[in-house]
Design a protein around this nucleic acid. Sequence first.
DNA 1: GCCTGGAGCGTACGTCCGTACACTCTCCGT
DNA 2: ACGGAGAGTGTACGGACGTACGCTCCAGGC
Lengths: 182, 182
Amino acid sequence: MATGRTDPERRDRIIDAALDLIVDEGVAGVSHRKVAARAGVPLGSMTYHFSGMDELLHEAFTRFSGTIVAVFEERLGAATTPDEAREAVADLVHHLSGGNQRELILTHELYTLAARRPAYRELTRTWMGRSRRALEWHFDPATARQLDALIEGLSIHRALETEPHERALTVEAIARITAPRP
Amino acid sequence: MATGRTDPERRDRIIDAALDLIVDEGVAGVSHRKVAARAGVPLGSMTYHFSGMDELLHEAFTRFSGTIVAVFEERLGAATTPDEAREAVADLVHHLSGGNQRELILTHELYTLAARRPAYRELTRTWMGRSRRALEWHFDPATARQLDALIEGLSIHRALETEPHERALTVEAIARITAPRP
DNA sequence: GCCTGGAGCGTACGTCCGTACACTCTCCGT
DNA sequence: ACGGAGAGTGTACGGACGTACGCTCCAGGC
C-alpha cells in the first residue's frame, strides 16, 4: 500500500478470475457480477477498471495466449537439434491435449471469438506467428507452417477423442511432415 | 396441411433459424425469443417443440455436423485413386477455410461446447469417426488418423490467417503425410 | 351437432444482467 | 489544519431472459 489506497493487483486479479470463470462456464457464462464475486472485488470495480466486458475478455485472452506461446518458445528454445525439436513438438502436443482441460477450453473459446471478431483474430494471428517463428528456429518456413497446422490438428483431435491416440502416432506424423525434402 | 393443424416443418425451421442465429451472434447470443422471431414462430413454440435451449442446440449441431460430413464423404467417395483422394482432401481444406465464414464459425462453436460438455463431445467424436472412415477408403488407418488431424489444423489456420496460405502448401503437406512408408 | 382431447399459443413472473451515477474516504498541497 | 481532487464503491434502474401455465380452437368420435 505504498500509495495508500490504490491496489495495482486488483486489475490482474480480475483478469485471473475472468479466465477461471471462462474455464468453468464459458465466455457465455461470464458476467460482471460473477467475475467480481470470484475476484473478491465489488461490482463497481468492474466498470471502473474495464470499459466493458469486451475489454476484460480481450485482456484475458491476451494474457492466456501469451502464456501458452511462452511455453511453446521455451520448449523449442531448449532444443538444439532437429530431432530434439521433434521431441519437443510431440511433448507440446501431448501436453496441450493432456488432462488439463483448462488450456483446451480457453483455446476453443478464443478461436470461437476469433472466428467472428477481427480484434480476437488479431490475437490468434500474433499467437500463430510467434509459434511459427519458434518452429523456424529448427525448420524451414514452409515446413514450420505445415508443422504448426499439424500440431493444432493433433492437439484438438487428441483432446476430443474418447481414446486419445498414442504418442507413437504423433511422433510418426511429425516425422513425416518434417522429413527432409527429396 | 394434410392433418389440418399440425405443421411438421415448424421444428425444422426453428433449427435452421437457430443455426443462422449462431452464425450471426454465437451460441452466447441465442435466445428463445431471437430464434422464434427469426423463424417466424411464436415464442410459445420454443418450449413446445424443445424441452429447452440445450435440446435445440444439440439438434442444430447434429444437423450441422451431418451436413459437413456428408460433403466430406461425397468428395472422398468420388475419388478412385490415392492421388485423386489427395486432390479431394486439398479441395476440402480450401473449401472449409474459404470465404464461407458460416462453417468455420459453426465448427468452432461446436468444438467449444464439446470441450466442456460430453453430450457435444459425442457429436464431434462421431463426426471425426466418420471422416476417418472415409479417409480409410484410400489410406491405411494410421495415415487416415494423421491426415484427419492435418486437415483440421490446415483448415483452422488457413481460415484464421490474414494471408491464407497457397494451395501448394496444402498439397505438399498432404503429400508428406500420405507418402508411402519406406 | 355436440363433446372432448390435445396441439399450439400469448402472457406474465421472477431472475439476472450491464451500466450510470451519487457517494465516501484517503492523501497531498498548502 | 484543512480543503479539494480523484480513486474506488454501493445501489438502483431499465431491459432481456427462460419458463410455467391458462387459454384457444380444430379433428374426430359419437
